[in-house]
Design a protein around this nucleic acid. Structure first.
Length: 570
RNA sequence: GCGCUCGUAGCUCAACUGGAUAGAGCAUCGGCCUUCUAAGCCGAGGGUUGCAGGUUCGAGUCCUGCCGAGCGCGCCA
């Protein structure tokens, strides 16, 4: 189904081609202010430049050609803006369609693509920390949006389970076993730090560790067995974190670095054979001229160390090729922090040089900034450690529970505290431009005032409360016209859901969905405050209940797309 | 030194990708509860968009140069 904006685009384009025999984007947007109407068209000034005519004349000519359209009324203002107001009839027709549509008027895409989304990516034998929150939350929302559009989404959790650090970790594990100690790791940070300390202070341990790396890479069964223990313990740890976060990600989505080990040698050989990579001081390097080192020399991407070892660049290249050739991905999205931008630029360039993908292949690094405390420094606990993800999640639930205990209408507070706490965490992360560093503030995100998850969920809960009290013998129905500007504003906002989702999909500007659902909740609260919903004539009640139903469905769907659940009581 | 990202109200952020008088939310101040959840609503004040030029009918947005912040720049991931 066509949105109102799309309808206006269509009739406007048609009028432009009838009057000026040309195709130009009519440039339709919502008006900056309500006094200008509902939508505006800003093409006349641009067209004036190309056909050398007065923009006001152009706007008037096009407006005249639209005169017989009963759904829109137009006026020309300023340097050639066309202000557009839509008829109640058009708005109501839209509302009825949305009310009848489980997808709220959003069609599945007509070009289904297989899209790999690479996100979360924690490390084995390492505690997850705040930094892992953003990739998980953003990546998950991207998957939800693409899935809703019915793309074929393949989630890939590229877990770091390989590398030189495992030499010391495994040796440390062996030492613990020899001491007869419990080798169940309860605190990965402590384990990791202890292993590192042994490596730094005990030369014999360091030597053993280096040998252990070689054993691991050569596939020594005993070493692999110990490595597997670390992997298993880490996976069960992830299983205590992921469910709390309510992610789509499952254990089936894990495709760790080690998965690509058998492909690394071939990957390097192929790039050498293609003359894309060459030897430099015994290391294999992909030459990329436009990238420079600190001293100004042109730099390459090392894909094999002089000792024969492989690096994460090699793994990423092998993974990329695997995704294109084996998984048959039409598009790949990497969700990691912006410090890795140069790395991915080099990987993507190399893949294009090798012609695994062509220049137009959609592959992108969706990057994001750091999580900072209110002092604009990395989030730390009181003792100065980097705050762990588990601490963060527990704290969010705990704070939400405290909030609920003050005034609650429900007896399911633990579940609701999870919804509110985790929802607050996610919403405040997603509601700002992800490119910028993000200032973490408990008081702000858990407030019922302002652009927060509690405010939104509260709006939803209020509607549910009304819907429960709505008489069973009535049937909701949008009336033939609006009786209040509050109704009309809310109705118009409801019809814009599809536009917002489609807009936010380009570049994954998730903050636009957050902004939209906030404005929607605000407009509902205004209606709620100024217009009785249950205490009015049956006809009016049915009309307003229908509006409430659409609003509730839209809030729920919007929040679902950003990975936030709703509840019926709070 | 080079590259990337950024600089908007006291604070946190928007601004539909070049459009009208730069908007929200916090915080501050002032109103509204015998009324569907006041966890809400209504109102007020608050700005030389880091600085200086340029392009354009029109610039927070594009170009150039400064100033400032963060991040990155070969054998770690």
């Amino acid at each position: 189904m066509m949105t109102i904006k799309q309808y206006i685009e269509s009739v406007m384009s048609d009028a432009i081609s009838r009057t000026y025999n040309t195709t130009i984007n009519p440039n339709i947007s919502k008006t900056s202010k309500p006094i200008f109407g509902d939508y505006q068209a800003n093409f006349a000034m641009k067209l004036a430049g190309s056909i050398k005519d007065n923009p006001i004349t152009i706007a008037n000519t096009v407006v005249k050609a639209l005169a017989d359209d009963s759904h829109i009324t137009t006026s020309v203002a300023g340097p050639g803006f066309i202000n557009i107001s839509i008829s109640s009839a058009l708005l109501i027709e839209q509302l009825n369609q949305i009310l009848a549509c489980p997808r709220l008027g959003i069609e599945p895409t007509n070009s289904v693509r297989r899209i790999v989304v690479d996100y979360s990516n924690p490390n084995i034998a390492k505690e997850m920390h705040v930094g892992h929150l953003r990739s998980a939350v953003i990546g998950d929302s991207i998957c939800r949006i693409l899935t809703f559009l019915v793309h074929d989404v393949i989630r890939q959790n590229h877990i770091g389970d390989w590398g030189t650090q495992f030499g010391q970790l495994i040796e440390y594990l062996i030492d613990l076993k020899h001491l007869g100690e419990d080798t169940t790791i309860r605190d990965f940070n402590a384990f990791y730090q202890a292993a590192q300390q042994c490596f730094n202070n005990d030369p014999a341990f360091a030597t053993r560790s280096r040998k252990r790396v070689v054993l691991l890479q050569s596939g020594d069964p005993e070493t692999l067995e110990l490595w597997q223990q670390l992997v298993d313990q880490s996976y069960s740890y992830f299983n205590t974190i992921y469910p709390k976060l309510d992610l789509l990600l499952t254990m089936d989505d894990i495709r760790p670095e080690s998965y690509y080990n058998p492909m690394l040698a071939d990957t390097v050989q192929e790039l050498v054979a293609l003359n894309i990579a060459s030897y430099d001081d015994n290391a294999v390097v992909v030459k990329l001229d436009d990238i420079k080192t600190k001293s100004g020399d042109s730099m390459g991407m090392i894909i094999q160390k002089s000792d024969g070892g492989y690096l994460y660049a090699t793994t990423d290249l092998a993974a990329l090729k695997y995704r294109v050739k084996t998984l048959k991905a039409d598009e790949i999205i990497y969700v990691t922090d912006h410090r890795q931008k140069l790395h991915f630029d080099m990987v993507f360039k190399t893949a294009k040089l090798a012609q695994w993908i062509d220049d137009s292949y959609p592959i992108q690094h969706v990057s994001f900034g750091a999580v900072l405390g209110t002092d604009k420094k990395p989030l730390k606990t009181r003792s100065g450690d980097l705050i762990t993800l588990r601490q963060l999640l527990d704290e969010a639930e705990h704070k939400a529970a405290t909030l609920l205990s003050q005034k609650s209408h429900s007896n399911d507070n633990q579940n609701i505290a999870n919804i509110i706490g985790i929802g607050s965490l996610k919403f405040s992360d997603l509601s700002a431009d992800k490119q910028k560093d993000y200032l973490f503030n408990w008081d702000q995100m858990l407030s019922f005032d302002g652009k927060t998850a509690p405010y939104l969920i509260n709006a939803y809960v209020r509607i549910q409360s009304i819907l429960r009290q709505y008489p069973k013998d009535q049937s909701p129905r949008i009336a033939d016209d609006f009786t209040s500007p509050f109704e009309r504003q809310l109705a118009l906002k409801c019809t814009q859901f599809a536009d917002v989702i489609l807009e936010s999909t380009e570049g994954f500007e998730i903050q636009k969905i957050c902004q939209y659902v906030f404005e929607l909740a605000q407009l509902f609260h205004q209606l709620y405050e100024h217009c009785p919903i249950l205490k009015c004539s049956p006809e009016l009640m049915n009309h307003r209940i229908a509006l409430c139903q659409i609003t509730a469905k839209t809030i729920k769907q919007s929040l679902h797309l950003i990975g936030i659940r709703t509840c019926d009581y709070m």
